[in-house]
């Protein structure tokens, strides 16, 4: 079976800095829910940006459904870590979602009507249909995150890549988004970067621990020793991660 995502011998460094990712190999099966966990600076966001084609690797290859990323952008949905910084501007939830139809210079839809239909479907999936005419500034933090998820879903991606989708939102909104993501599989492959081992252990099929190298384990095998390894360069983060996991039972 062709992997949804196949990474081989990946190396990446930010300009003028030592490699943040080196010798990374990873295969993600179609329909799998993979969590990526690791300390700050371990390269989690870089890894997901490389999969999304936002960054280019210095060496190695990344394939989506057996083809290079640049040829498969239309099958990938990406939700960046940071929300748009122009919430003061008159942009509606529907207009935001429709931007997911862009594909290079051309939109995916043959007409604006098709794009509006696609956006409406994605907003329904993220339980935001009633908020489509609202301005971004009128949304709560959780609603904005779901609107960004809808934008990533508009192109009907086979692979959904999300970078800390529930950072800085309240627990109720967080639970709602994770439940939505869980429902995306197995129809889609979902890859999520998170700082929260408890949430990943509960929702993901496998967890990729990133700390200089990559170690992948089944979600139910995430224990204190694995967290100790993942946060070995950052004992204070390990303690916080372990506490979060214990608190979640």
């Amino acid at each position: 079976m062709t992997a949804a995502v196949r990474i081989r011998n990946l190396r990446f460094a930010h300009a003028g800095q030592p490699p943040v990712l080196n010798g990374i190999d990873l295969g993600i099966a179609p329909g799998e829910f993979l969590g990526i966990l690791g300390p700050n600076g371990a390269g989690k966001s870089s890894l997901i940006q490389l999969m999304a084609g936002v960054l280019r690797p210095d060496a190695g290859t990344i394939e989506i459904l057996g083809r290079p990323v640049r040829e498969m952008r239309h099958r990938v949905g990406y939700m960046p870590q940071h929300a748009p910084h122009v919430r003061h501007m008159p942009i509606t939830v529907s207009a935001l979602a429709q931007l997911g139809c862009l594909q290079g210079w051309r939109p995916l839809g043959r007409s604006r009507a098709i794009e509006r239909t696609r956006a409406a479907a994605a907003l329904a999936q993220t339980e935001l249909a009633e908020l489509a005419p609202r301005l971004l500034r009128e949304l709560s933090g959780g609603e904005l995150q779901r609107a960004l998820l809808a934008r990533a879903l508009v192109a009907d991606p086979a692979v959904l890549l999300l970078d800390e989708p529930t950072a800085h939102i309240d627990p109720a909104a967080e639970s709602r988004i994770w439940a939505l993501l869980r429902r995306m599989t197995p129809a889609r492959t979902v890859v999520v970067v998170s700082h929260d081992p408890a949430l990943l252990a509960r929702h993901a099929d496998r967890i990729a621990l990133l700390n200089g190298t990559l170690r992948v384990l089944a979600a139910d095998a995430l224990d204190a020793a694995a967290l100790q390894w993942a946060y070995s360069r950052h004992p204070e983060l390990h303690a916080a991660a372990a506490a979060r996991r214990e608190a979640a039972g």
């Binding site: 952008r73 942009i91 931007l99 862009l102 939109p107």
Partner: peptide, 20 residues
């Protein structure tokens, strides 16, 4: 105008959609 909006809102997302 939609490309302008895409890069103004979020350059990383625009790149992921292949927008130059």
């Amino acid at each position: 105008h939609r490309h302008f909006l895409a890069i103004s809102l979020d350059e990383d997302f625009a790149r992921s959609r292949g927008v130059p």
